[in-house]
Design a protein around this nucleic acid. Sequence first.
DNA 1: TATTACTTTATAATCGTTACAATTAGTTTA
DNA 2: TAAACTAATTGTAACGATTATAAAGTAATA
Lengths: 143, 143
Amino acid sequence: MSEQKISEAIHTLKHAGVRITPQRHAILEHLIQSMSHPTADEIYKALEGKFPNMSVATVYNNLRMFKEVGLVKELTYGDASSRFDCVTTEHYHVICDLCGKIVDFHYPGLDEVESLAESVTGFKIARHRMEIYGVCPDCQTKH
Amino acid sequence: MSEQKISEAIHTLKHAGVRITPQRHAILEHLIQSMSHPTADEIYKALEGKFPNMSVATVYNNLRMFKEVGLVKELTYGDASSRFDCVTTEHYHVICDLCGKIVDFHYPGLDEVESLAESVTGFKIARHRMEIYGVCPDCQTKH
DNA sequence: TATTACTTTATAATCGTTACAATTAGTTTA
DNA sequence: TAAACTAATTGTAACGATTATAAAGTAATA
Ligand SMILES: [Mn+2]
Ligand SMILES: [Mn+2]
Ligand SMILES: [Zn+2]
Ligand SMILES: [Zn+2]
């Protein structure tokens, strides 16, 4: 289960010459075990019981670090906070307009879109992002 | 040309019971004639010669208004400012990773992605967003 | 142990955006 | 037309997420 993933991640960090501090370990563990897409502040609040003195800057610092070594991806949205995803394999997200729930959505990739964009615009395309919006099953039943 | 579009937009506004103030007209005109995707601040700066006393709040207020009546769409990005697009027909954007240039990209729409997402997740899908990232022709030649 | 580099912490600063209250301008009513 | 009402603009304060900075703590190394 997630034990496996945590120790892999720690190995990656050690290999990158990064110290495994208690705070760092806890942030990583929370990210992996939560199975969700938490914001920096959600992580901060989730850990304040265990680390009453941890600074919110520590959460941000470490999330940036994790991004740099490829352990997490940042999902950015307009006004709201960024969310962080430790599933770094290619996938999309379906987001509920009402409650904000984010669900992973695996899809074959849109290579043809990229190659068409490349030929039409002359850009050298590197990647794309896509999110799909709607109303989740829970919110549908709640009227 | 854009004259046509401006008068159509003004008609829409009047129909919505909105006064056409000089500031409002200028913001609208700039949006339509610029043929680009300006930020609120870019609009503000572009008009400060003509309206030295205009408040930045006026730009934001009117952009929100335009959005509400469907004249413009807001493109939101992570950290950076929102950009505003007065082409409200369905299209995508190709964005340069180096200079930030935004180019329209028309593509048949991804209805199959939406319907697959709907069946897989149980969401009632309403829409999606997609952006494609790469390096623009200009930035490619500048090495 | 002394030195060094890394990490955390606390807090100030930044930036885009919005809220608010006062003022101005336009519209309707008497 | 004048008064009353409504909409819009302005200037500025506030907000919220994130980053910068400097001081203090901790681990690694010599
Ligand atoms: Mn995900
Ligand atoms: Mn566009
Ligand atoms: Zn929902
Ligand atoms: Zn470019």
